[in-house]
Write a protein that binds this DNA or RNA. Structure first.
Length: 195
DNA sequence: ATAAAGATCATCT
DNA sequence: GATGATCTTTATC
C-alpha cells in the first residue's frame, strides 16, 4: 500500500467540508506493538461557537478544549465512560471546530485490533463506534494535541468514497436545537458505520 | 475555580 | 453484554 500523507492545508477547509472529505481517508496509529489503520467511514462535525453539543460551545476556552482553538489538523481526544473518543481539529486559529471520527473500516494491523478488542468479536465490531475504534487503534488521551499529519498518529490518502450520506448526529439528545443539525456524515452502505 | 479521571445507567446488539 | 460528546468526585492551580 502506498501511503500518501495528507498535506497540512487539507485541514484548513471548512469544518463541514472537511467532515465529508475525511470519509475514505486512512487513519493510522503507530504504537510499540505495531501499526494499525483503517478507512474513515463516519464522521460528525462540531462547530463550537454555535453548537450546544460541542465542548467548545460559546467559545468556552479551557485547557481541555485548548487544542481546538489552535491550528487545524491536530488531535483532540476526550475520555468518556472510560472510553476514548477522537476528533480532528478544524477551523482556523481561534475557531474551536472539530470533526469527530465515529467509525472506521479496518485496513491494516487487524490482528493488533483483535488483540485489543477480543478475538471472538466480528471484524465489524472492531471499529464501528467512537469508543471502539480508539481502543482498536490504541488511541488514548496521551495522544491529545498531536499533529495529524505525521507519526505516530496521522491521516493519509485512502479510497474514493462512493456515496456520502448525511443526517442528524447521535447521542446528543440533551443538546437542544443543535441535535437537529445534519452534521453527521457517513459512507452509504458501509457496514462499519455505527448503528 | 478549573480540569482530569473514573464511574453509572439507558439504549442498542 | 457492550457502548456511549454525561455526570460526579477528586486533584490541581
Amino acid at each position: 500500500m502506498n501511503i500518501q500523507l495528507l498535506k497540512v492545508d487539507f485541514f484548513t477547509q471548512p469544518t463541514l467540508e472537511l467532515a465529508q472529505n475525511l470519509l475514505g481517508k486512512l487513519l493510522l496509529k503507530e504504537t510499540t506493538d505495531g501499526l494499525a489503520s483503517g478507512w474513515i467511514v463516519e464522521t460528525e462535525a462540531y462547530i463550537g461557537p454555535g453548537d450546544r453539543a460541542a465542548h467548545s460551545f460559546g467559545n468556552r476556552r479551557t485547557k481541555r478544549t485548548e487544542v481546538m482553538f489552535g491550528p487545524p489538523g491536530y488531535v483532540y481526544t476526550y475520555v468518556m465512560h472510560t472510553h476514548c473518543l477522537v476528533n480532528v481539529v478544524s477551523g482556523k486559529i481561534g475557531h474551536p471546530e472539530a470533526v469527530l471520527i465515529r467509525a472506521i473500516e479496518p485496513a491494516s494491523g487487524i490482528e493488533l485490533m483483535y488483540d485489543r478488542r477480543g478475538h471472538e468479536k466480528k471484524e465489524k465490531d472492531l471499529t464501528n463506534g467512537p469508543g471502539k475504534l480508539t481502543k482498536a487503534l490504541g488511541i488514548t488521551r496521551e495522544d491529545y494535541g498531536l499533529p495529524m499529519f505525521e507519526p505516530p498518529l496521522y491521516i493519509a490518502e485512502g479510497r474514493a468514497v462512493k456515496d456520502v450520506q448525511s443526517g442528524p448526529r447521535i447521542g446528543i439528545e440533551n443538546s437542544g436545537e443543535a441535535k437537529e443539525y445534519p452534521w453527521r456524515y457517513w459512507e452509504a452502505g458501509n457496514r462499519f458505520v455505527s448503528r
